[in-house]
């Protein structure tokens, strides 16, 4: 029996995948996809890796990822992902790590600039909310999409490309999917559905956002770095000079995946330095907790209006 393949577009690439993602929009089959995803045999480790972390190893153009109870992934040459499923792993678990860490490694191999952040389109402009896990990136982006007329460009990982002709940086569309915790889901008035948990033992739900998803690149104007405080009012502060580079490159998604790939690292820093003059970068401190989100949203809206990134009539 022939293997069935599914074609998906994300981050400016076409993926030919052996595993279906129920929330992604299938594309028509093409003869030369950018990346082939297939099941196959994956070694237990790489020989003499150049660098490693708790779950990964990399050597030259090979990247190896091992997720306990789920599977092993081998990402090669920026155009191939092979998956070996571990006993008992569900399709849902396989795709959680495939479309996050495995694809992030692939994007790094292709020299793409990817940051840890969720991005929205407000008006004609892209805004990225970046920050560590738990800082509220997805929740803030979701609130803008559900209540403030924004659209989602990407959740959790945002890929930025620079067009040398127009000298404009763009955010590339990611997936029409968000992963939300129960408190955020309740805040958005969504119905909690245990059958859509990303994994049986992790209380995070996959939310299909096809109706709020932008499927084209959007000019990037604003980048917020979120952090939380436990006292006092929140604050937004614009950063300038070398701090902008430090802040943006500090939020490169899975920066450790770049270790020892010196040429790739240089490409990404060069790309980042071209982008910086074109975008506004701010730190955003907010009080921790879902109860303080409304004031955070208000603060962001005011900042976007004052800086001219959105107008008051939107």
């Amino acid at each position: 029996m022939n293997q069935q393949y599914y074609y998906y577009k994300a981050f400016g690439l076409v993926f030919k995948s052996c595993i279906e993602h129920p929330d992604f929009i299938a594309e028509a089959a093409i003869s030369e996809p950018d990346c082939l995803i297939s099941f196959g045999s994956v070694p237990h480790k790489l020989n003499k890796p150049d660098a490693l972390g708790g779950v990964y190893q990399l050597q030259g153009r090979q990247f190896f990822l091992r997720i306990e109870n789920v599977g092993r992934y081998l990402i090669e040459n920026g155009d191939k992902i092979t998956i070996e499923r571990l006993p008992g792993a569900t399709d849902r678990e396989i795709i959680v790590f495939l479309w996050a860490s495995a694809v992030a490694a692939l994007l790094h191999q292709r020299g793409k600039l990817i940051v840890h952040g969720s991005s929205i389109m407000k008006g004609e402009n892209a805004i990225i909310f970046s920050g560590p896990s738990g800082s509220g990136k997805s929740t803030i982006a979701s609130i803008f999409a559900t209540r403030k007329g924004a659209m989602i460009i990407s959740d959790d990982i945002s890929a930025i490309s620079y067009d040398p002709l127009s000298e404009v940086p763009f955010v590339l569309p990611g997936y029409p999917l968000m992963k939300l915790w129960r408190d955020s889901s309740d805040k958005l008035g969504l119905e909690w559905d245990d059958s859509r948990l990303i994994r049986d033992r992790v209380n995070k739900m996959m939310v299909n956002i096809n109706d709020k998803f932008v499927n084209h690149s959007v000019p990037l104007r604003q980048f917020y770095l979120l952090s939380y405080i436990n006292k006092g009012p929140g604050a937004i502060r614009e950063v300038n000079g070398y701090k902008k580079l430090e802040l943006l490159t500090g939020k490169i998604f899975r920066k450790n995946y770049l270790k020892k790939q010196e040429s790739g690292t240089i490409d990404i820093f060069t790309e980042a330095s071209k982008i910086l003059p074109k975008i506004r970068i701010c730190t955003l401190q907010r009080l921790l907790g879902i109860g303080h989100l409304d004031e955070t949203i208000e603060m962001i809206e005011q900042d976007l209006m004052q800086s001219g990134i959105i107008s008051g009539i939107q």
């Binding site: 708790g54 779950v55 997720i67 860490s101 992963k179 992790v202 899975r254 450790n256």
Partner: peptide, 12 residues
């Protein structure tokens, strides 16, 4: 997350 190279919020 940085040293493991994975998002802990997706692990048990």
């Amino acid at each position: 997350d940085e040293l493991a190279g994975i998002t802990s919020s997706e692990l048990a």
